[in-house]
Amino acid sequence: MESLFINLSQAFTAWLMSLGLSAGWADALLLAVQWTCIVAIVTLNITILIWLERRVSSFFQERLGPNRVGPLGCFQTVADALKLLTKEDIVPSAADKLIFKTAPALFIIVAVMLYAVIPMGDGMQVVDLNVGLFYFISIGSLSTICLFMAGWGSNNKWSLMGALRAVAQMITYEIPLAFSLLGIVMITGSLRLSEIVEAQSGVWFIILQPVAFLVYFIAATAELNRGPFDMPEAEQELTGGAYTEYTGMRWALFFLAEYTNLVAVSALMSTVFLGGWQGPWLPSWIWIIIKTYLVMMVFFWVKWTFPRIRMDQLMSFSWKFLIPVSLGNILFTGAGIYFCKWMGWC
């Protein structure tokens, strides 16, 4: 069970080579298959996630949630997805057509690109970059441009307001997001995600870096535009923010990308803070799924428990609290490492 997928991919490469392909082409085809699998899993997983979030959120709010279509309402999202696929695609006549149309596609591309470096199990990574963690942060920062394109291209005041908020929020929360992970890089001495997982074979980094975990969690909530930091959409005040003018499948792509980002960030959090794919008894790829889902449940829990905060509170919270705290964490971690070396513990 443990190396099921590795054996599968090796068998696939061997089969291609036996057909007379060169090693380079076989690898390229394997890469294409891996990406197709990622996209397929992401898309199918989202239907489960949306159903889960709707059910869980309704339990938080003492409602029942969708429970009519299929057992426990589990076919509700399938029905919704079919409805979205068949809806009319409306492009506002005053919109900036090219920008309006490309924004959702770019958003989902950026979201899927995040999965390239996440270790989904022992040795199960599409590419094991030596700057994997940094790749994740910098690719993640591109999604703001897509939100801006959506908001500006729609030519609607609510959309533009949402885009403005998304951009401001991103500038603010990018800094604690990156700084909180620096402590872990200092301890591991590497940006390679597989080495960060290896370094947690003894103690998980959530125990060594609890402050970093909290700062990253808060900053990631803001980067994902999830409640209580979902100002860029804010249905009640902005009627949907940057997504206001989108309909049908284009709107669904945004929704899809948001959940794709959520899964990617949760997977990164379980990789960096919760020991990644390491765990007893079960195969490694099941452990990462379990941990990712647990982190996601915490995201759901936070979203449906806390009310949305004000924009100025959001900004001052990051600049005046999160950034100093994450800088202090870096200082503390550095001092701790030197103390450890001085005492001869590591």
């Binding site: 700057v131 910098s138 690719i139 991103m170």
Partner: peptide, 25 residues
């Protein structure tokens, strides 16, 4: 030069351009 490339994406494409857009808006 992967690291430099990622710095280029994070700092220029991700932050500087966002600042420019912010100023425009």
């Amino acid at each position: 030069a992967g690291f430099i490339g990622l710095v280029q994406i994070l700092v220029y494409a991700g932050a500087i351009s966002v600042l420019i857009i912010f100023a425009i808006m």
